[in-house]
Design a protein around this nucleic acid. Structure first.
Length: 887
RNA sequence: GCCGAGAUGGCGGAAUCGGUAGACGCAGCGGAUUCAAAAUCCGCCGCCGCAAGGCGUGAGGGUUCGAGUCCCUCUCUCGGCACCA
């Protein structure tokens, strides 16, 4: 009756014992998958592929709950699609370069490489113990030369194409440790280790010309209909295309004629300019400070502090006049030049024109320093007042120009056009499309990263390392001191000869941003063993049309995902032999929420909070279950209940997934993760919830065991001749299959899929299924229950399915099909509302028409009672739902 | 500060296209079983009210026969802000 499965002979699948023992079951199931190569992915042009990718982890030491959640979601989707008949690839690797390895080296005097490889070993074992269907033959770590040599190779190609170039960039400089700091290493303006006040410093860096792809990266967002709308919107705003005018304020200084360039989207307010502001690093500021010690001191002050935009945007806006003036490009009037701490040298032109009347920040700045405010836009029905800012002042869509000479009466668009035309005629400006997106600075003055393959020659300049000299191998025996850059202290690394002229030269000692490795790893999974090329034709099979599903944290919505899209286009345009062009890497994207947990603390001396791990706390509740207080388990004394926050070391509210796996097994961990919240939402940790997941699995196990123990069943139910109650139960079964398929596939909402299966099992338990027809239906239901749960809890599924169908292999089984004939219903229940309030219900034949339903509703007891004899004014019939009678 | 999300019982969440608010689970309460406990099973479980009924989806307004869902205003929480990954 059922076709036997090709791999069904599986003697190592143990018989079902009465007691559910996760450790034994999981060991047996994993051994079986290993033996049958269940997770291996082999290219097969005759079958549709499904490439299911989860963001690879940084090997930080051990898995955290966020990893467990991420990879369980991926595994559920991978296994579900395998059951639908797809040829599935689910790979895994290691994002192995990064700062934590250097921090660990500093703290524990271990080599970053050794530390990293040890972490990988441990975390790989953890991933394997969770039973993920990963093709481990494709595994790689990005810190191996076998991987990063191709990154270096691509770098040299991009360098030759001019898509990588060198310019000055601003970094956080720790003057005590003599080192560059990451933004997260700057705490309240001070270096994290030295405590020294951090300074901004300009250093030469390599940049990737992502702005050359800004238009395409923006336009292609429209193609990504498998992405969450919020992610596309965030990327669109990040790219930030705006059309404006680049214009110049001419000036004379030291006998030379110069121009100060600015960019503005509000050229229509040009006649309202009352000053211009330049960055502290701007040449005009430097020049003005030469004979102005007060200004020089202010510029020094501006250079203090870090470079993070969030800090710059929230700090107090300060400024100082330079004493210099430029000419207004239209009127020729003298406009004072100020230095502003909020103007950034690397953004746009490093200078801005200020129109206090029509820009909120300029308004506040002008008020603070008593600078003139000149209204040049007026809107009907609105009164301009210098007293306080009003939102309409800055609204492009409102008003027309005033006090603007020949431009008076023009609206925003017309005024911009007219002013741009006049500026263009004078050679003082033109319309320009500008992007907020900036080129990507990839140089890092760090050790644990991919070396930049450039050789500096006194005669030949920056020379890319030739192919035959790649890879530039990162030495693994180094000393990390926390000061300076380790590679810059290693002559054996940087001393070399120029590939062009053969003279002694110096190798670049900066490494690349670790976002570079994660910008192309997903393509390399198709061909990780190729030592002759970066990518090969296997990419055409797995990645064509994009990777089918990508899963990762919402925190990567902008940077990582934008860089990965950018690299896919770069690789396409470099053109790799045999590799067909790909425009977009990820067809469908699922962004998962964080894992959060309650926090507990005690106030220490001087009000410092001492955070206590939830595992060490007992929470007391009142008779309704509301928490009334919490005590520390060890001493029974009260602790303070804090908020629910992202699991972190600093709040000590992390729960180790390993403890969970050890106590309950991988299936319980996986089930809890999928059941507690939908994937996109944050997930609250709950010990009690874990208990519930475990209880449910025990119940599934017991139900299947009892059914099997009662002896063999002749056949699955076909439903044709079932009595009414069983017919209803069978309808419920097939409704559930339809819902679970939709939840796994289209909706990607697994908590409701689990809930639906729980409901089905509840209905099964309530029904009397002791006779032959009932036993047959029970067989059909239990097989479906086990297979529907299989993507989430594959270990218990593997064993239980083999017990239900001796010799069958759940890992090769197809997902249950919906029997449409089982869904047919004779009678439908409708709700009755009177004036929008629910008053009763009504059963009508499925075939009833609107008129019949209306008559039946008006004649119903509930309607007559609540209409209170008033005639119906209107009757709304929503087929299959309700009837609303308005009186 | 800017960009993007979110807010529903004691708790996690469900309600998919504007149509039964609270599915499913946790906690709690009552009962069965047990020498006892664990486990398991059965029942109750938004708030107020004896009941009839009324109220109820962060707050305030609006659209609609009907709003958790759509529109406007506001509050709070979270993610990102280019060197954490």
């Amino acid at each position: 009756m059922f076709a036997t499965h090709p791999n069904s002979a599986s003697p190592e699948i143990p018989a079902m014992q009465e007691k559910y023992t996760p450790a034994d079951i999981e060991r047996a199931a994993q051994a079986h998958w290993q033996k049958t190569g269940a997770a291996r992915a082999v290219e097969d042009a005759t079958r549709p592929k499904y490439y299911c990718l989860s963001m690879f982890p940084y090997p930080s030491g051990k898995l955290h709950m966020g990893h467990v959640r991420n990879y369980t979601i991926g595994d559920v989707l991978a296994r579900f699609h395998k059951m639908l008949g797809f040829n599935v690839l689910q790979p895994m690797g290691w994002d192995a370069f990064g700062m934590p390895a250097e921090n660990a080296a500093l703290a524990n005097h271990v080599a970053p490489a050794g530390w990293t490889y040890q972490n990988i070993d441990y975390m790989k074992k953890q991933l394997q113990s969770l039973g993920f269907a990963i093709d481990w033959e494709r595994e790689f770590a990005t810190c191996t030369p076998r991987y990063y040599r191709w990154e270096q190779w691509l770098f040299t190609r991009l360098f030759e194409k001019g898509l990588i170039y060198k310019k000055l960039g601003t970094v956080n400089w720790d003057p005590v440790d003599q080192t560059v700091l990451a933004n997260e290493q700057v705490i309240d303006g001070r270096g994290w280790r030295s405590g020294a006040l951090v300074e901004k410093r300009e250093i030469p860096m390599y940049y990737m010309k992502i702005t050359a792809y800004a238009e395409e990266l923006l336009a292609d967002l429209d193609k990504l209909d498998g992405w969450p709308e919020q992610v596309r919107l965030m990327q669109k705003n990040w790219i930030g295309k705006s059309v404006g005018v680049r214009l110049a304020f001419p000036y004379e200084l030291d006998g030379k004629s110069e121009k100060l360039w600015v960019f503005t989207t509000r050229a229509d307010t040009l006649m309202g300019v009352t000053f211009v502001a330049v960055a502290a690093e701007h040449p005009l500021a430097t020049r003005a400070a030469q004979n102005n010690p007060e200004l020089a001191a202010f510029i020094e002050e501006c250079k203090r502090g870090g470079v993070a935009e969030a800090d710059l945007a929230t700090m107090e806006k300060k400024g100082m006049p330079t004493g210099l003036f430029v000419q207004h490009p239209i009127t020729g009037a003298q406009v004072p030049v100020w230095v502003g701490n909020y103007v950034l040298m690397n953004y746009g032109e490093g200078a801005v024109m200020a129109v206090p009347a029509h820009d909120e920040r300029d308004f506040a700045f002008a008020k603070k320093y008593q600078l003139p405010i000149k209204q040049v836009i007026a809107a009907e029905g609105e009164t301009f007042s210098l007293e306080a800012w009003q939102d309409w002042y800055g609204d492009k869509t409102k008003g027309v120009c005033v006090h603007s000479g020949k431009y008076d009466g023009l609206n925003h668009e017309a005024a911009v056009d007219a002013i741009a035309a006049d500026l263009s005629a004078k050679g003082l400006g033109e319309k320009k499309t500008q992007f907020r997106l900036r080129d990507w600075g990839i140089s890092r003055q760090r050790y644990w990263g991919c070396p930049i393959p450039i050789i500096h020659c006194a005669d030949c300049g920056d020379v890319p390392v030739p192919d035959e000299q790649l890879p530039v191998v990162l030495p693994e025996n180094v000393e990390i001191t926390g000061t300076g850059s380790p590679l810059a202290k290693m002559p054996e690394f940087y001393e070399c000869t120029c590939p062009k002229c053969g003279k002694p030269a110096k190798r670049e000692t900066d490494t690349m941003d670790t976002f570079v490795e994660s910008s192309w790893y997903f393509l390399r999974y198709a061909c990780p063993d190729n030592d002759k090329a970066m990518l090969d034709e296997r990419v055409n099979y797995w990645c064509q049309g994009g990777i089918d599903q990508y899963i990762g944290g919402i925190e990567h919505a902008i940077l990582h995902l934008l860089y990965a899209r950018f690299f896919t286009k770069l690789i396409r345009d470099v053109g790799l032999p045999g590799v067909a062009p790909i425009d977009e890497p990820f067809k469908r994207l699922l962004t998962q929420g964080m894992v959060v947990a309650p926090t507990f603390y005690r106030e220490g001396e001087n009000g410092k909070k001492l955070w206590i791990n939830p595992a060490d706390v007992d929470v007391a509740t009142d008779e309704r279950g509301r928490p009334t207080g919490a005590t520390l388990k060890s001493d029974g004394q009260p602790v303070i209940i804090g908020g629910t926050e992202k699991m972190s070391k600093s709040k000590n509210n992390g729960v180790d997934p390993q403890a969970l796996i050890d106590q309950y097994g991988a299936d319980t961990a996986r089930l809890f993760m999928m059941f507690a919240a939908p994937p996109e939402q944050s997930l609250e940790w709950s010990d009690a919830g874990v208990e519930g997941a475990y209880r449910f699995l025990r119940r599934v196990w017991k139900t299947v065991h009892e059914h099997v123990a009662a002896g063999p069943v002749a056949a699955c139910s076909s439903g044709a001749e079932l009595p009414e109650p069983l017919k209803d139960l069978r309808r419920k079964l097939h409704q559930t299959i339809a819902k679970v398929r939709d939840d796994y596939g289209r909706r990607q909402q697994f908590n409701t899929a689990v809930a639906a299966v729980m409901e089905l099992l509840n209905a099964h338990d309530k029904a009397d299924l002791r006779d032959a027809a009932g036993r047959a239906l029970a067989q059909e239901i239990l097989e479906a229950v086990v297979l529907m749960l299989f993507p989430i809890v594959p270990h218990i599924g593997q064993i239980a399915y083999a017990a239900l169908k001796p010799g069958a292999d759940a890992a090769q089984a197809a997902f249950p099909q919906v029997d449409e004939t089982a869904l047919v219903q004779d009678e439908i229940e409708l709700m009755i509302q009177v004036n929008g309030k629910l008053r009763g219900s009504l059963k009508v034949p499925a075939t009833a028409d609107k008129a019949g339903i209306e008559a039946a509703a008006l004649g119903s007891e509930a309607a007559i009672k609540f209409m209170e004899g008033k005639p119906p004014k209107k009757v709304v019939v929503v087929p299959g739902r309700l009837v609303n009678i308005v009186v």
